Amino acid sequence: MTRAIYRITGPDREAFLQGLVTNDVAKLADGIVYAAFLTPQGKYIADFFLIPADDTVLLDIDASIAAPTIQRLSMYRLRADVQIEETALHLHRGSGTPPPDGFADPRHPDMGWRAYRDTPQADDEIDWTALRVAHCIPETGIELTPDTFILEAGFERLSGVDFHKGCYVGQEVTARMKHKTQLRKGLARVHLSGPAKPGTPLTGDGKPAGELHSVAGDQAIAYLRFDRAGNGLMAGDVAVTWEKD
């Protein structure tokens, strides 16, 4: 998917972000940070990468949600000395050891590296969707929607949330889900016994049990109701198996 790269400047930039995003912005001292921006009710608005760049912070976000997200972030600026501008930078991705200007993807080692350059990437033959599915990594607009709670989407496993930082928008709901409840629903990697399309409803012993999202070969990311995801899980007439990680 196309990415938009923004530059956040001003002396209050890190304090501004710290009060809004799910991860600890202080981690920028060590490199790239994956985070989300939530509603006060704890639901997903956007996910993005924050990247240290001299005395600025880059924000790498799916282009389809960039404009409304930046507009909503800007509503919180108030008197903060912060500026947010779109850049002409391009995302480059690859596998293996990051180049000197690259950062290892913090979500999973197999997701390679990300770098931000003045020219577009010439070619990219890596099947990133297959890698995403193999490691149950959600995608903006597919698994991640306005109805998503980030813990159901695996953000703790993906290093996208910090439970020791201070308050941020949506923090109370997220913390309550972490400490007071056991997740009954969420994303999981499943195996398919045959072809099945994204969006196919799942049933467990004939009862609604979730839905398929991203599919790659005989694997898929599914949103599951865990108490119905045991034996007898089906996507239409295709048998589905799920093993807890």
Rank of each mutant, 00 (worst) to 15 (best):
E156M: 06
V25A: 00
A196H: 02
S74K: 15
R7I: 04
F149W: 11
M234F: 10
Q121C: 06
G236V: 01
R176H: 11
Y168K: 03
A235M: 06
V82N: 06
V173A: 12
T148F: 03
F103H: 13
D162Y: 11
D205L: 13
L187C: 09
R132H: 06
D205W: 08
A63T: 06
I70N: 04
T97S: 14
G230Y: 03
R228Y: 13
K185Y: 06
G31R: 03
A229K: 10
A15M: 06
L58S: 08
E172W: 10
M1I: 08
P99Y: 00
R114Q: 11
R184H: 11
H213Y: 15
F49T: 13
A67G: 08
S64R: 13
D118L: 07
D62L: 01
G232L: 09
K244D: 14
Y6G: 03
A63I: 07
M234L: 14
T200F: 13
I70A: 07
Y116E: 09
R132W: 02
L224D: 14
C136P: 04
D12R: 15
E211V: 06
N23D: 12
R13P: 03
I137H: 05
Q71H: 10
T203Q: 10
V173D: 03
P100C: 08
G236M: 00
T39R: 14
A53F: 13
F163V: 04
W128E: 01
Y116V: 05
H213V: 07
S95W: 06
G217N: 15
E85M: 12
S214M: 01
R3G: 10
A26I: 11
L58H: 09
E86S: 14
A122D: 10
P40A: 13
A104Q: 06
L202A: 02
A15Q: 10
T87D: 07
L183H: 09
G31L: 07
G236S: 01
A196I: 02
G186R: 05
F155T: 00
A26Y: 11
T119I: 12
G194Q: 00
Y44A: 08
T9R: 15
F16Y: 15
E243H: 12
G170Q: 08
I45F: 13
F155V: 04
P52H: 13
M1S: 14
A67K: 15
V173T: 14
R184S: 12
K165V: 03
Q83K: 02
L158K: 09
F149N: 14
Y44F: 15
A222K: 05
L17I: 05
Q219W: 01
F48H: 05
T87H: 09
M177V: 08
D118Q: 09
